[in-house]
Design a binder for these strands. Structure first.
Lengths: 261, 261
DNA sequence: GTTTGTCGTTGACGAGGATCAAAAACTTGT
DNA sequence: ACAAGTTTTTGATCCTCGTCAACGACAAAC
């Protein structure tokens, strides 16, 4: 019954979309920590690393990994701590952030179902990962996963492609952080989030925002107040509508013009 | 004799360091385009992708690549154009930048000897690469290189490690762009440049800056004027000394405190 | 030498976003 | 339903950094 609560919460965050019921974690009914995996039934196996594997590969993966559920606001791992595992997010949303000694924070990204954590094969984590919603992750020991890579060149190429893609996104974000106004930053963020949900749920003007205004500010190099003001202004100008769990993009062309490459 | 001129310019940029003569391109005396490579003689073979290859691998690499010289201010490739090649920088320095439609620019990085360009295996280039100094690059056709990767898993792992490293740096830069003051940005930049030169020439308080103030501003999300003012102020406060081709870091501890993670 | 162009520096001024403060709206637990 | 905590919004004020303008230093071209 705990899983029912979680499912409800997940639906609150991702829900009200065309096909929200698609977002269902792998082993819904097993209590965490649930041993082993069931990759074949995984909802997002076609979108994540796993799609680079043949059936035997999937079996091998199942053997070295396990599914783990995390409640909202819990921490999956912390910046600076030893990185013993790599993860594959199957449901929910995460905040990835770096903290400065004086408390300033930079959110370096938000993870969505299908995203892989730990592409940086460094001994310690470069950022902290927190669950914004109840989340499910497939967890693999770093060494086991590393060994497996050696026997599966396709998997490595897939990881390489994902890392390259991430790098490209990071460079895009540099442009946003370095050379865009507050209004453009918000526009770029909303358009970007829409695009990410489109990959999972199909395109929609309804964009759920599981993170707080503070998180958005820390992602865009702005304060909460500026984020709030800009979004209120956009709502006043009928560019967006603010709804309980996110926004609806009314004037998408205008937003895309603002966010333009 | 053209190569002598180039060597002189290279020395101006990297020079006056402990062991500047180490920075000598592969095929110094052959006029560009020089056919083939001479990887075994390459100055930076231990720092770049190539170090993942055995002697036969190096030979294979030599066959599919060629060295190419570029004068200062020339463009190696342009954002948006088809990416037919990948490159390995063997000498000189490059500016990697993204241009917005309205002329605003974000420099996403500076390439130094040993750096690999084209880790993003996308069909078009995500940024423009310009030579800040006369530069030499090993150039490989994308398809040839891709084919070669399939036979050399160690090479792929090496590339993966480099991509991961780049991703980490990009995330660091996000913190700098999003959450740091002008003064801290300059400090982080100078300390970072020093660190990169240290890998090539060994540690030194003398940090050559082959890029203009405008380039630095576009890298840090600042204007030329702010960069100039901050550097002048740091010089007035005896934190740095501005020299013709760069800076000397007088109060490194102070700079590192400002740039602190 | 003069010219021309690029680059760096400096000053005056203004605007965009940060900061401070407080209220309103929403959650969560009891 | 009520209380406590969190998140969002709004207003007033401040300040860092961007903008505009001008000048000096330097290098290359003639």
């Amino acid at each position: 019954m705990e899983s029912l609560v979680e499912k409800a919460l997940v639906e609150t965050v991702f829900g009200r979309l065309e096909t929200n019921t698609r977002i269902i974690p792998c082993n819904t009914h097993k209590p965490p920590p649930s041993p082993g995996l069931d990759c074949c039934d995984c909802e997002i196996k076609d979108q994540s690393v796993c799609c680079a594997l043949d059936p035997e590969g999937l079996e091998a993966l199942e053997r070295i990994g396990r599914t783990q559920g995390y409640p909202a606001k819990s921490t999956i791992f912390e910046q600076g701590r030893e990185a013993g595992f790599v993860y594959n997010l199957t449901s929910g949303a995460l905040r990835l952030s770096k903290l400065l000694p004086d408390g300033r924070r930079q959110v370096v990204g938000f993870a969505m179902p299908g995203d892989f954590l730990g592409l940086d094969f460094e001994p310690t984590h470069g950022y902290t990962a927190d669950a914004l919603t109840p989340a499910k992750l497939c967890q693999f020991s770093r060494v086991g996963f590393s060994d497996m890579i050696d026997g599966k060149p396709r998997l490595l190429r897939r990881l390489m492609a994902m890392a390259s893609h991430e790098l490209g996104l990071a460079q895009e974000q540099m442009v946003v952080l370095g050379r865009r106004t507050a209004e453009e930053k918000i526009a770029a963020f909303l358009v970007g989030m829409r695009k990410r949900y489109a990959r999972i749920n199909g395109p929609s003007v309804h964009v759920p925002l599981p993170m707080t205004r503070l998180d958005i500010g820390d992602y865009l190099g702005l304060t909460v107040e500026t984020v709030s003001r800009m979004m209120t202004r956009m709502a006043r100008e009928k560019t967006i509508v603010i709804v309980p769990d996110g926004v609806r993009l009314l004037d998408l062309p205008r937003l895309e013009r603002l966010a333009e490459v």
